[in-house]
Amino acid sequence: MTPESPAAAARDSGLATERTALAWRRTIASLCTATLLLAHQAVVTRSAADAAAVSTAMVALLVVSAIGHRRNRQLRSGRTATPATAIVATVLAVATIAMVIAVTLSGSSLRW
């Protein structure tokens, strides 16, 4: 990878931070949508397993929201290095929601 020229760096000042913040917001919005769909499924089926899936998804959503908020504050203060723990925690939370959705949808018939 070649280093950026000073002109390119000046054009991108602050834009990378904004793109990262928007990516966190999109991730959290997606997780909110998935959690709401799971909640709808739990209300329709009235299943304890579906309710447990919603609880798990809500915890994962809170974890990702907290990480995203912390990361946005770090970026705004000028710290650009991403801690490995934040990446691992986010991946685990998103993977947990994906598995919960897969198990919930495979174990019950969809009723819309």
Rank of each mutant, 00 (worst) to 15 (best):
residue 1 M to Q: 12
residue 1 M to W: 13
residue 3 P to W: 12
residue 4 E to A: 13
residue 7 A to C: 14
residue 13 S to M: 12
residue 13 S to I: 12
residue 21 A to K: 07
residue 21 A to G: 04
residue 22 L to K: 10
residue 23 A to M: 04
residue 24 W to S: 01
residue 26 R to D: 09
residue 27 T to Y: 02
residue 28 I to T: 04
residue 29 A to P: 00
residue 31 L to T: 00
residue 31 L to D: 00
residue 33 T to M: 06
residue 35 T to R: 03
residue 35 T to N: 06
residue 35 T to P: 08
residue 37 L to D: 01
residue 37 L to Y: 05
residue 37 L to P: 00
residue 37 L to F: 02
residue 37 L to Q: 07
residue 38 L to K: 01
residue 38 L to N: 00
residue 40 H to I: 13
residue 40 H to V: 09
residue 41 Q to W: 09
residue 42 A to M: 05
residue 42 A to Q: 03
residue 43 V to W: 14
residue 45 T to G: 02
residue 47 S to E: 10
residue 50 D to L: 14
residue 51 A to C: 13
residue 53 A to L: 07
residue 56 T to S: 15
residue 56 T to N: 10
residue 56 T to F: 06
residue 58 M to A: 09
residue 59 V to L: 15
residue 60 A to H: 01
residue 61 L to Q: 04
residue 62 L to Q: 13
residue 64 V to D: 05
residue 67 I to M: 03
residue 70 R to W: 12
residue 73 R to Q: 06
residue 74 Q to Y: 02
residue 75 L to M: 04
residue 75 L to P: 01
residue 77 S to E: 11
residue 78 G to M: 01
residue 78 G to R: 00
residue 80 T to I: 13
residue 80 T to Y: 08
residue 81 A to F: 07
residue 81 A to E: 14
residue 85 T to N: 06
residue 87 I to A: 13
residue 88 V to F: 05
residue 89 A to I: 00
residue 92 L to W: 04
residue 93 A to P: 04
residue 94 V to N: 09
residue 95 A to E: 08
residue 95 A to G: 13
residue 95 A to C: 12
residue 97 I to R: 00
residue 97 I to F: 00
residue 100 V to Y: 07
residue 101 I to P: 00
residue 102 A to W: 02
residue 105 L to G: 10
residue 105 L to C: 05
residue 105 L to W: 04
residue 106 S to L: 13
residue 108 S to R: 11
residue 109 S to D: 11
residue 111 R to G: 09
residue 111 R to L: 13
residue 112 W to Y: 05
